[in-house]
Structure formats: C-alpha cells, structure tokens
Amino acid sequence: MLPPFGLARPRSVSAALAELDEDSVPYWGGTELLLAMRMGLIRPRQLVDLKGIAELTEVRIEDGELVLGAGLSHDEVARDPLVAEHAPLLAYAEALVGNARVRAQGTIGGNLCFAEPRSDVATVLSALSAEVRLVAADGTDGADGTDGADGTRERRLDMAAFLLGPYWTDRQPDELLVDVRIPLPVTAGVYLKYQTVERPTVGVAAVARGAAGCRLVVGAVGELPAGFDFEDVASVDAEAIAGELEPTPDLTGSILYKRHVTAVFIRRALAELAEKVSAP
C-alpha cells in the first residue's frame, strides 16, 4: 500500500521548479519511486508529476551533442531514430533494461536520479562521456553553477560527478534533471551484461577511443560505475581491473565470484569491441 501524498501537475519546467523541495519530489514513471514509497523508504508530502511538460521528452542534436529529454522512456530512447543513428550503443542498452513494462514506464532521467547501482543506463552513459543538465529556480547561487535562462540556474555534471553512491546523486532537492547530453560523434562501442536475475550482476561498456584505445566502464558490480581509459586495448589487464573494484556481494554473487565474472565480461566485451572496430 502506498502512503498518502499530494500531487502537483506543473505544465512547465519553471512551474515544476517552484514546487520542488526536500519533501516534494519529481515524479515521472514511478518505477523506482513508487516502490521505494511502498517499502516505506521515502514518504514525500507531494509528488511533482512532470509528465505534462512537453520539452522534457524532446530528442535533438544541439551544439555537437545528442540531447535527450529526461522524461523519455527507455523504450522511446531505444526506438528513437536519432538515437539509433548517433548513439546506437545507448539504443541497444536501453532495449535491454528491465522488462517491456519498465521500459515503457521508466525514464532515462528517473533512472539516473534514482542511482540504482545496477543501472545499465548509467554504465553506458558513462562510457559515452555523457553529462546531465540540472536546473533550479534561481534563488541562491550555486558555487559552480552557471546561469540558465528564465530565472533559473543550471549546472552540467558528468556521470562521475553526478552519481555519488548507491541511490545517491548530487541532485539537490530544488533541482530538476532536464536532459542528458551525449557528445558526438559516438565511436564504435559494445555493451555486454551478465544477468541471471532481474538486474545485472555486471555490465561492461567499451567504446573505441583513438586508433587502438578505448573507454571501459564497469557497472552494476559495485556501488558506482567505474571508468577506465586505455590507449591500447591490447594492454588491458581484465583481472587487474576487476581486482581494483569493490563488488557488492548479494544473492547473485559473492565478492570473489563477482570479481571473476567481471574479468570474464571485460575480456568478452573487449574482444567484441575489437571485432566491431576491425569489421569493414
């Protein structure tokens, strides 16, 4: 049973920002938030339903970036022609999130804000060097904030700065994640995950960099996606990387096992990437 709560249904970002505080939280698909509320982990006074804000579901190319509105569902991202053209790796990973209902209901922005440590999306977006854009009503000056339009302030964070821990991000209670920005062009990449239950045990994203290098991100296995950059794929020591990680033991694996399969999937991902890069 859900606890009782009030509901605001703003029609614009600025109207939404006026509603946000510690106890009045952004709400879209509810795939994570409603579960947390049902379990008694969160008891907000009010949900701020963002689904009436059209600009949060736009996909566009802007200043050399692929811009994805935070309210796009996983399924919408997976099937969007611009995403397919410019960031096929993200489209691929989004098509594997959860199940078909979660993909239809859950959003890319909600997924990131909830910071579920086993998120496929965060791992892939880290590998793509994506950033999130956060805006807040311009009441106070954020230390590293830049001025946004219309009496708002905004800041951009990459995944490492945004994701602080399991279920913990740098989003402040008055801030709204409005979009995700992926720098273009996106080079060849792969995403491989090892999943035996509802969520992945480990997810490995690898994106080609330069002539022989890659950016490797290992997600799901620890508290946060871990990124590594290599000049030469051939020099990657999968065991050494896995050994650096701190896996979270759970019913899908002990620390020992998770380290082991992490190494296995790093090797498999890099082999697949090499194949992709060398393919004509």
Partner: peptide, 19 residues
Amino acid sequence: LTPERVWRLMNGLPEADDL
C-alpha cells in the same frame, strides 16, 4: 545449482568464502 555454485564446484572452492 546457481552459476556461482557451479563455478565454485568447478574450481574446488567452498560454498562460501571465509571473509
């Protein structure tokens, strides 16, 4: 016989590690 159990079986490892 979960994947980890089978892997431990193959590698002669105990059911759980002494941490």
